[in-house]
């Protein structure tokens, strides 16, 4: 018998899907990934996942976005008791933050200096925009001041 633990995912977008698969240890085997786009879908269907998690664990990942804090979002979405097999996780602010937090590999992947990647990623208000801007680093370097996420380190690189 396989020693893998089957688990289902429910996510907002493809990036969350990929990130979760990367994070999950090898002993987990992803069964079905429910990904129909957007947090509206997740919010609407979370009761279903809670229901169904008595048969198989579900890992739900959503972005916190503009909500104040994760517990508040969870309470709001699922005011009823959460089944212990439903792992409801919230990325602060967005799952893009998690990608940025892996500064080494992110910098290497998009081909920029590690120092250009912000350190305090949780403080970034719009991580998606930040990520896109960093990936388009040519523009940032070509038009200094364009980016609103200039950290002191980045600034030092630009004015050096």
């Amino acid at each position: 018998m396989s020693s893998h633990i089957p688990i289902n995912l429910a996510v907002e977008d493809d990036l969350s899907d990929v990130v979760l698969r990367k994070i999950l240890p090898a002993r987990y085997e992803v069964g079905v990934c429910y990904n129909q786009g957007g947090f509206g879908y997740l919010k609407k269907t979370i009761h279903g996942f809670n229901n169904a998690s008595k048969w198989m664990p579900f890992l739900v990942l959503t972005d916190l976005d503009r909500v104040e804090c994760a517990p508040k979002l969870i309470k709001e979405w699922l005011p009823i008791p959460i089944h212990h097999n439903l792992l409801f996780r919230v990325a602060v602010r967005e799952v893009e933050t998690w990608v940025l937090a892996d500064r080494d590999r992110f910098a290497k992947f998009v081909g920029i200096r590690k120092a250009l990647v912000p350190v305090d990623v949780d403080a970034i208000n719009d991580p998606k925009e930040c990520l896109i801007n960093l990936a388009n680093n040519i523009f940032i370097l070509a038009f200094p001041g364009y980016d609103s996420y200039l950290t002191p380190v980045m600034l030092w690189f630009l004015v050096r």
């Binding site: 493809d14 990934c33 129909q36 269907t45 009761h47 996942f49 169904a52 008595k54």
Partner: peptide, 27 residues
């Protein structure tokens, strides 16, 4: 069982069943 409970939780067939038909390595 799982689909049954997803449907009870208000999901449509499209939400509850179609994700199962997506090939594993579609990415």
């Amino acid at each position: 069982n799982e689909i049954q409970d997803l449907l009870k939780g208000g999901l449509s067939i499209a939400d509850a069943v179609l994700p199962r038909t997506v090939p594993k390595n579609v990415h």
